[in-house]
Write a protein that binds this DNA or RNA. Sequence first.
DNA 1: CTCTGTATATCGTGC
DNA 2: GCACGATGTACAGAG
Lengths: 240, 240
Amino acid sequence: MTTTESVRARTNPSIETAHSVVETGLDSDALVTIFGECTVDYEGRAESTLGPGDRHVMCKPDGTVLVHTDEGHQPVNWQPPGCTHEVSVDDALVLRSERSTPEEELLVRFRDVEHVAAFDVTDPEELSLSGTEEDLRERVLDDPELIEPGFTPLSTERETPAGAVDIYGEDANGRSVVVELKRRRVGPDAVGQLARYVEALERDLHDEAEVRGILVAPSVTDRARTLLAERGLEFVSLEP
Amino acid sequence: MTTTESVRARTNPSIETAHSVVETGLDSDALVTIFGECTVDYEGRAESTLGPGDRHVMCKPDGTVLVHTDEGHQPVNWQPPGCTHEVSVDDALVLRSERSTPEEELLVRFRDVEHVAAFDVTDPEELSLSGTEEDLRERVLDDPELIEPGFTPLSTERETPAGAVDIYGEDANGRSVVVELKRRRVGPDAVGQLARYVEALERDLHDEAEVRGILVAPSVTDRARTLLAERGLEFVSLEP
DNA sequence: CTCTGTATATCGTGC
DNA sequence: GCACGATGTACAGAG
């Protein structure tokens, strides 16, 4: 195995060998993984400590660090993209990752490294995702009758003092309509959002007629339905 | 290397060898990683496809799958805990992960496996985290004067028709107070949340005097400050 | 299961 | 940089 290979890996390496693989990997913008017994300390937006245990640590060339245990989607500790890594050896293999704004530091100490690897990554592809809120918006703009007969979209992302409205338009009677789209079942927060937009737009337009607010989502919770009714807002069921 | 080792790894394995390591690993509740050129297809709450490229795939014994590229904190594709994995070979190494409620499927096809590993994980430790909203609440309960002189907490998680209030109490004049805590700078959503609680509690109490609503956070955005003023709500600055 | 709210949320976009 | 909203958000707690 040479450094020109796209993968450099060692099982049960010495701390020094592990250090070499990690350092070389970080320098060459490889994706580096370390598995072994470690402790983890974090200080920044919050603070945390994690006692000794086996974890899988991934360092990405963009400065991301992820510490994974055997459970859960979420890493037990991490550092976001843009951090600077630093690896050193004392009685353990030490990985330190820092950033500023906000000031944050992650410190991983490996007593024992069971596996280390550096991967050269070539990934030219972008994820193609559908079924998002934007897809839902395009569908409504293609066929405004999905909202109600006579509905006419006038603009998307219309700016109000309360933020940008998903779809702004008019109904069959020429009344202003604010449409808020959600790709999944919504709770009270979405009602609050729609209410803010309607309120802001009524002020903005100095309109005599009230502005209608329509929440478009697959479904709503009971509490959200009550809030909609209280505020005179409407609901249209639409799957993404 | 034998199966009693805590790590089983192969660099540039054949598809068949990779299949063996992955299958054995999944069967023995190991944490399994695969690195190589693959495509990824997802169908469930949304749909996605990802063309060929080098990615790092992790399968956890709890049924989690994570597909990572060389960038970002977030996996490009994933499957949450509780999924069932299935690995097979045709012209590629195929990993399929499924779950129900909601019905979701992830399919990863490796044309070429550059590295595969199975790790036995022993992790007895729990993360100790501080600086959360709960810590902030305990600090306020220990020293209610942090809110204002004369404030007396009466209960936490008090239930209202709009949900549970962080801290419910009385001010020096015996007026009811709703406190909403946030560990970081807040925007309009938090104001809406507090407003809902205040409104619900006023109804609940049939109180003649208005209920005060106090947002406690390190800081607020301009828009949130405006909304607070419009609704007659208050703000107290407090770091977590 | 659903509902609700928190998160070291992350991420993208616009200003 | 900050602000704001979407996310296949994940996750925990309560009902």
